[in-house]
Design a protein around this nucleic acid. Structure first.
Lengths: 190, 190
DNA sequence: GTCTATACAAAGATAGAC
DNA sequence: GTCTATCTTTGTATAGAC
């Protein structure tokens, strides 16, 4: 029933980064959480910097998969947009956790330069996906008032991240809903 | 020419929190920056928790003053909204610093409960101000398509914060502009 | 109000046995 | 792959002299 240690460490570290920030947890915390000694962690991730890179790598891969799943299951653009909004809301865990990318962004100075690049790539990937959705939404007329799909996508990612941040700041996921409600009003009804 | 030590410490600490996060700096950093020994800091702020409270208190006061100045100098709602957008952009310092409130929000678990309350109050203050601006903008017709001023205000603060975050993530203040451009298009021209 | 000196705990990391 | 043991540095904080 027990998954491998490396995965357990990544899971624990991701939870920690997203709730307390990269400088807010230690190898001792992970060791305690996973049930091994902290020296053993260095076998999997020689440095905390290496761990941060591994975290972003996995996060990017899993997020890409999630978007692909949305593409596969939601036919029209309005449904795809609603699904990604829901994805960000779920990721909040009721106001406890942020997107990994947001959490790491605030601690950028404690991280290796490689993570900056990973974050840029992660953001570019999402914005590209969103732009495609807005483009489709304009064509299908399932998303209203779309003038410039690329501009919409560039503005929407910060809105989602800001909505998470705001919800977390007050530990209330209702604030996330309030922040995205104007956007949702532009989606064609069911 | 030298301001008092307490103020110098607050300045240094605010810069540190906004660039590296609350867990990303130490009393040693402050001491080095201000030019005293770290033991001396405890005379002004007995604990780091106390420092965080003092930081948020001053930030709230200064932000209120900035909004009052905008009210005093900008007559119409579109100009006031443009001014607060500009305020957030300036606060970025070219992609280096976040709003103190955003930075502290991500480290909430390392902070005394009092700071959570201060952050909520700070956010409520800004949202109230924004709602008034949207309300005026709708009446004057200097901000387009305003259906619900309160909803607009609730969505705009996360957008501004998310725009800062996004710009900082890639150390590029142009991203801030891109994130708020759709909003700006709704303001009446000069 | 600032200093030196120090306490004490926690941090990231390494060496080497099993 | 995990352990014990240890190193070194850094963190927050205190005591007491000046």
């Amino acid at each position: 029933m027990q998954q491998d240690t490396r995965t357990a460490l990544l899971d624990s570290a991701e939870r920690a980064v997203r709730t307390r920030g990269f400088d807010g947890f230690s190898y001792a915390d992970l060791a305690n959480d996973v049930g091994i000694r902290k020296a053993s962690i260095h076998h999997h991730f020689p440095t905390k910097a290496a761990l941060s890179v591994a975290l972003m790598k996995r996060y990017h891969e899993e997020f890409s998969l999630a978007l692909a799943r949305i593409d596969a299951t939601s036919s029209s653009a309005n449904l795809r947009l609603a699904a990604v909004i829901e994805h960000y809301k779920t990721a909040l865990h009721g106001g406890k956790t942020l997107c990994l990318c947001v959490s790491l962004s605030t601690s950028l100075e404690s991280l290796p330069p490689e993570v900056s690049i990973q974050i840029s790539q992660f953001r570019a990937m999402i914005i590209e996906w969103l732009a495609k959705v807005f483009e489709d939404g304009a064509k299908q007329d399932t998303i209203r008032s779309v003038q410039n799909p690329s501009a919409e996508a560039t503005a929407m990612l910060p809105l989602l991240e800001g909505a998470q941040l705001a919800a977390r700041a007050q530990q209330d996921s209702g604030i996330f809903d309030a922040a995205v409600q104007l956007l949702k009003l532009r989606l064609a009804g069911p």
